[in-house]
């Protein structure tokens, strides 16, 4: 029955496959979480880019005599123990947090996806060795390993990013490898091979796009996770160095004055939470979107 409908449909009008991205966009439009997440993220990037315009004060200038001031018109979120404007520091901190997450997620997603593709395609000894490395790294709590690596390399923004990248690529590699193995068996790959398509053609033209959906979801969720991990390392004193307004280290500096000036800790925490929430909204929404999208593509 359904088969007949399909055939008659096929004869009535030619199916025009829309470009991948366009079709995906149509699906995304309806999802409220994706829209909220995207809106928030756009807003955060806007803050990061226009930080000099938004911040009322210099983020590292120490205002003498204005130590631990409660929120006021001059200092919207108060000042810290050195008389620096917390609001301005938070605004500039957006740049650091977004930089860390974009860099780490970008690097880990690319490396992890490539290794997963290679592993899934090559099979044999290459696959075995790569997956054992992944096993080893996954069999140890990631943040603790990052803590040890960053701690040994010494505090600093670059070292934190490096540590998080060393730990972070494994998830992508494993998921992508699984996808490749599943896709490799499908009819269209066999058909392409029968038609004389080369290995690289199959890999990039047919399998890569199928793998992209889970990678995008993981990357969106990974952005939030990276910000959380980076601020945890900053909180433990391993992040960027003192005058830089990193959110995690701001919390660490502020906790000494928790009783005297709770605004020193409350606002940086809220900033971290809002940013992570935005990326989690996006990631969750995308995950909801990707499933039916994939199903629909199969139906066509």
């Amino acid at each position: 029955m359904s088969g007949r409908i399909q055939t008659s449909k096929m004869f009535q009008k030619p199916i025009v496959m829309k470009p991948y991205a366009l079709e995906l966009l149509n699906f995304i439009k309806g999802n409220c979480r994706v829209m909220v997440g995207c809106g928030l993220i756009f807003f955060l990037f806007l803050i990061a880019v226009s930080a000099p315009l938004i911040a009322p004060n210099d983020p590292i200038e120490q205002h003498r005599g204005h130590y631990l001031q409660p929120p006021s018109w001059q200092y919207p979120f108060g000042t810290d123990d050195l008389g620096r404007c917390i609001f301005s520091r938070l605004v500039y901190g957006t740049q650091i947090s977004l930089l860390i997450s974009v860099m780490v997620v970008g690097v880990t997603a690319i490396i992890g996806t490539s290794i997963g593709l290679i592993s899934g395609f090559a099979g044999g000894a290459v696959d075995e060795v790569l997956m054992r490395i992944v096993d080893i790294l996954l069999a140890f709590p990631g943040l603790i390993l990052a803590l040890v690596i960053a701690g040994l390399l010494g505090p600093g923004l670059f070292n934190v990013m490096l540590a998080l990248a060393i730990v972070g690529w494994t998830g992508y590699a494993r998921v992508v490898r699984g996808c490749v193995l599943a896709e490799k068996e499908k009819g269209f790959v066999e058909a392409t091979r029968a038609l004389g398509g080369s290995k690289y053609y199959i890999m990039f033209r047919h399998i890569m796009p199928e793998v992209l959906a889970p990678v995008i979801v993981m990357a969106a969720l990974g952005m939030g996770g990276t910000i959380l991990s980076a601020s945890a390392l900053g909180f433990l004193g391993l992040g960027s160095q003192p005058p830089a307004p990193e959110w995690g280290s701001m919390l660490n500096e502020g906790r000494t004055f928790l009783q005297l000036a709770p605004y020193c800790t409350i606002f940086p925490g809220l900033a971290i939470m809002l940013t992570v929430l935005a990326f989690n909204f996006l990631g969750d929404g995308l995950r909801d979107v990707m499933d039916p999208w994939k199903k629909k593509r199969l139906e066509i």
């Binding site: 945890a232 940086p268 992570v276 929430l277």
Partner: peptide, 13 residues
Amino acid sequence: LVGVSMPSFWLAL
């Protein structure tokens, strides 16, 4: 969603 996004050290404070 809020619980997942909240830094544990902030919750502690």
